[in-house]
């Protein structure tokens, strides 16, 4: 599987993502600087975590209007898988590739710890190597992970099985609506999540539960 990681000024998890992708796919991913206007021919585009543009204006707001983003939208439109992690999820929402917005954590604190994630839908390109209802540990590190959208969109996301991951009952770290940790676009090829599966991929991380997310995409594009 060929992949690319888009790097913005203020991205800081791109190296973890590049490392994870190479480890799991066996192919060295491309790192694409945000000023580029075209993406290499790949099966997966990843927007990594970080604090692009210092979170100025709103998290992800400035990066979402960057030069590379029309190419990301075009790739998504062609069916290429697009994954946004943490700041990448915020950017996808700001760019309109996913609905809703990530707001300041309800507790106002930056949350950096492990959470329990529950697989809400295991029938997606990003979760098919998990089982529905499976609970796994994953780190989060964010100040703005509080997913919000209007009632109508929320009902659609739930009704169409587009909530891929939730924080397990009673462990919501940020006040996110319906404990949402990760959502899909309508077509199912764009996925955004706040937790960091790329930091849960080898025994040194304590567990390898994040691997299945990347292996799901690997299987989906095979």
């Amino acid at each position: 599987m060929k992949s690319a990681v888009v790097v913005f000024p203020g991205s800081n998890r791109e190296r973890d993502m590049l490392y994870a992708l190479e480890l799991i796919t066996g192919v060295k991913p491309h790192a694409v600087w945000h000023t580029e206007r075209e993406l290499p021919d790949v099966d997966l585009v990843v927007l990594p975590g970080g604090f692009s543009y210092g979170d100025y204006l709103r998290t992800g707001a400035i990066a979402a209007r960057g030069n590379i983003m029309p190419a990301v939208a075009k790739a998504a439109d062609k069916g290429v898988r697009v994954l946004g992690v943490c700041n990448g999820f915020q950017i996808l929402c700001e760019a309109g590739l996913l609905p809703g917005v990530l707001m300041r954590n309800a507790g106002l604190k930056f949350v950096c710890r492990h959470v329990k994630l529950e697989v809400a839908n295991a029938d997606t390109d990003f979760t098919r190597k998990y089982t529905r209802g499976q609970i796994w540990n994953c780190p989060v590190a964010h100040g703005d992970g509080n997913y919000f959208t209007d009632d109508e969109t929320l009902a659609r996301l739930e009704g169409e099985g587009r909530v891929g991951l939730r924080y397990a009952a009673g462990t919501n770290p940020n006040g996110s609506l319906n404990d949402i940790a990760g959502i899909l676009n309508e077509r199912g090829n764009v996925f955004g999540l706040m937790p960091h599966p790329e930091n849960m991929i080898e025994p040194l991380n304590g567990a390898t539960d994040g691997r299945a997310l990347f292996e799901s995409v690997l299987e989906a594009v095979a």
Binding site: L57, R58, A61, I62, R65, E94, P99, G100, V101, M103, F148, T149, D150
Partner: peptide, 9 residues
């Protein structure tokens, strides 16, 4: 509409 406000919220 395009940048300064996020009209979702």
């Amino acid at each position: 509409k395009k940048l300064l406000a996020n009209t979702v919220i």
